[in-house]
Design a binder for these strands. Structure first.
Lengths: 153, 153
DNA sequence: GTAAAAAGCTAAGCGCGCATACTAAATGCA
DNA sequence: TGCATTTAGTATGCGCGCTTAGCTTTTTAC
């Protein structure tokens, strides 16, 4: 009788790659939340702090440049950075050449926290993706290659 | 100089499967939103309406059973179902045997809308995952198999 | 040189995902 | 029967992802 209500390509209505992608990401985000909880960071806060720590050695970083690097929404980026600033992890200085923009810096505490948190996150990721039979070498596996294609990178 | 700020396993800091997963899902959700906009449904509203349409032929469906099927949060499920009820797509009747529970039904409009929307969503999905070289046969490809493993199904 | 277009950022609001806490009904067990 | 435990559902609150709107400053076009 199940086929009567809904006409779909998928027998069990739960084999669509899109639906699976959504459910897997929800699981992954829950794991990230748990791993980051001891550090007082949310997932997006960690991503932006880590990306900024990575970029900041090159010189002044604008919020737009950071948002592009992390593929985050510029609005979100602005809001989260103000939260990080409030926690003393980040500085938002006036940009030397462009009076519209901000020049972002990581404080010493921010850099130290990013380095501690990144270890926890990578351990969390390794456990999460272990079921795929991760071989641990440098070559990206098929799953990662597929994700990169879908991400447009 | 980039390596000075952050110690990470990943060279470009953007090759982690977790980060890619997150970014891909954000893209997919944006595509879903756009595809569902003409039907006045959000992504979760569509998922629950479609899942209920699929299940409702079997008999009375409780909110918990629907949430389990769709892998959605029970709170979200409750809230979204009330919105769908307000739009006349769903009925939330008292359960015949369990006075705590609700017996969910899809209205004729709800079923018709679900069937129209599912076609749009499947077309959207097909376009989104086309870069993976979808062969279109019944056997799940490697990407879908990996997702099912990560989803715990 | 001035006007138009674009860029960087902020404010406000909606839907989602989740955590915590609560009511009421059903179930298990002695 | 009496009572503790479990279960279905709701209320509240926070952070995220996005949209719309608006401000200021910079760049471009004429």
């Amino acid at each position: 009788m199940s086929g009567e209500g809904l006409r779909t390509r998928f027998g069990s209505a739960e084999e669509s790659p899109g639906l699976l992608l959504w459910q897997v990401t929800n699981r992954w985000q829950a794991a990230q939340r748990a791993a980051l909880k001891p550090y007082g960071l949310t997932h997006v806060q960690f991503v932006l702090l880590a990306a900024l720590t990575y970029l900041a050695a090159e010189g002044p970083v604008t919020q737009k440049a950071l948002a592009d690097q992390a593929a985050t929404d510029p609005m979100m980026t602005s809001q989260v950075l103000r939260a990080l600033e409030g926690q003393g992890l980040v500085r938002r200085l006036p940009h030397p050449h462009d009076k519209r923009a901000r020049a972002l810096e990581v404080t010493d505490e921010g850099r130290a926290l990013a380095n501690r948190a990144v270890a926890a996150v990578e351990a969390c990721d390794a456990a999460f993706f272990a079921v795929l039979g991760d071989q641990g070498d440098d070559a990206p596996d098929g799953f990662t290659r597929a994700l990169r294609a879908l991400a447009g990178r």
